[in-house]
């Protein structure tokens, strides 16, 4: 099937099989390998991407469902600088070890901060509870998100 969508600001037209998942399309057709596959059944959150402004699991959406849509991935958010402060906080706090969950974790964290500028630690923990991290034990991630929220609040 032919689909046309916007990916990180660029218009993409492609011929995809109906069964192709959106994240496989991004990784294999567009070589945007920053979105990772951890479970392929919608649990781990490593493939979290933004579709039409809302975060979705790239492994639970078919590429054809994104036809006409606007997709943003970690590559797009990095290049635009939208989450540069959040990324810097992750680095400063060592809020990633192997880094495999990190793109999805950053997408989820940014989604929280867009909807709740001053989340509590409990709210941060709750919001990222759909994103599995095996390395950090989460505390450093919570710290980094909290730090970013405070920095953004001060900058307002």
């Amino acid at each position: 099937m032919n689909i046309t969508l916007t990916v990180n600001g660029e218009t993409v037209t492609a011929d995809v099989l109906p069964r192709t998942h959106l994240v496989d399309f991004l990784r294999e057709h567009l070589e945007l390998t920053g979105s990772h596959l951890g479970c392929e059944h919608g649990v781990c959150g490593a493939c979290t991407i933004r579709l039409d402004g809302a975060i979705v699991r790239g492994c639970l959406v078919l590429a054809v469902q994104a036809d006409g849509g606007v997709v943003e991935t970690i590559e797009g958010l990095s290049d635009s600088g939208e989450i540069a402060d959040l990324q810097a906080a992750f680095i400063a706090r060592n809020a990633l070890q192997c880094g495999f969950c990190t793109p999805g974790m950053l997408m989820a964290a940014q989604d929280l901060l867009l909807h709740n500028a001053t989340p509590t630690r409990e709210e941060i923990r709750e919001h990222i509870s759909g994103n599995y991290c095996r390395c950090t034990g989460y505390q450093a991630i919570v710290d980094a998100v909290e730090t970013t929220a405070k920095q953004r609040a001060r900058a307002q």
Partner: peptide, 18 residues
């Protein structure tokens, strides 16, 4: 800070699966 973190936060890592 760890030198390899910037690329991992930007989705520019290279895992074997990539």
């Amino acid at each position: 800070p760890r030198p390899n973190l910037a690329r991992l936060t930007e989705g520019r890592g290279l895992y074997v699966s990539d």
